[in-house]
């Protein structure tokens, strides 16, 4: 069970490409958690960023001051902004959580994940284009992805998230907030562990 449900510190890894807003996604989630009174730490993979190249960012959220300052090696949850990166993300098999990915596929289509990881999916690229975020060739998917991630993991609520988006994004705060709100409503998740158990125990629903 992810540690978020136990009220402890949550470690998140974000994967995207330079230009998609991966680092800003980590800052949006951090700011939202801060608005909710939590302690946060958000940082990019320490390196040189190039447009189009894979980018990693890290996020820690917790009830107490966060002290660990190394990178995140065993994430509780993972957020993937680019579908081509999905098969490349390394996941600890013995430490599963939510794997929230930007893809038009249904969650069940992400069959390569270790069994302990639970997929959730959203077509944020389509959403970003529909809301005029970024360019057609390089849609900026960070805000809808942050919203989908927040909805699925429960890491922050919608009000704080929308406020954080307005305070963080450099351009088009309204369009970003609208795309986030739509993503919040439409992200699709594989059944939760509890739902699975109920299904197995009682059948039907």
């Amino acid at each position: 069970m992810p540690r978020s449900t136990l009220g402890g510190e949550v470690e998140v890894r974000l994967h995207g490409r330079g230009g998609q807003g991966t680092v800003v996604a980590s800052l949006v989630l951090a700011r939202a958690a801060m608005i909710e009174g939590k302690s946060v730490q958000a940082f990019p993979e320490f390196g040189v960023e190039r447009r189009g190249a894979p980018v990693t960012a890290f996020l820690r959220v917790g009830p107490e001051k966060i002290r660990v300052r190394s990178k995140v090696y065993r994430p509780d949850h993972v957020l993937v902004l680019d579908r081509q990166l999905i098969p490349l993300v390394e996941l600890p098999a013995d430490h599963g959580g939510w794997f929230v990915a930007n893809t038009p596929s249904e969650p069940a289509g992400l069959s390569s994940l270790p069994a302990s990881w639970r997929p959730a999916t959203i077509d944020a690229t389509r959403l970003a284009r529909a809301h005029g975020l970024g360019s057609g060739a390089l849609p900026v998917v960070n805000c809808p992805m942050a919203a989908a991630f927040a909805r699925i993991t429960g890491i922050v609520g919608l009000d704080a998230l929308l406020q954080a988006i307005r305070e963080t994004v450099p351009q088009k705060p309204d369009a970003n907030a609208a795309a986030a709100q739509e993503a919040w409503g439409t992200v699709a998740a594989a059944p939760t562990w509890e739902q699975d158990a109920l299904q197995r125990a009682f059948g039907g629903s």
Binding site: A30, M34, S39, V40, Q41, A42, F43, P44, F46
Partner: peptide
């Protein structure tokens, strides 16, 4: 510290 503080956001 480079990156560990310089590029890390916190409250």
């Amino acid at each position: 510290d480079a990156f560990v503080l310089s590029h890390t956001a916190e409250a």
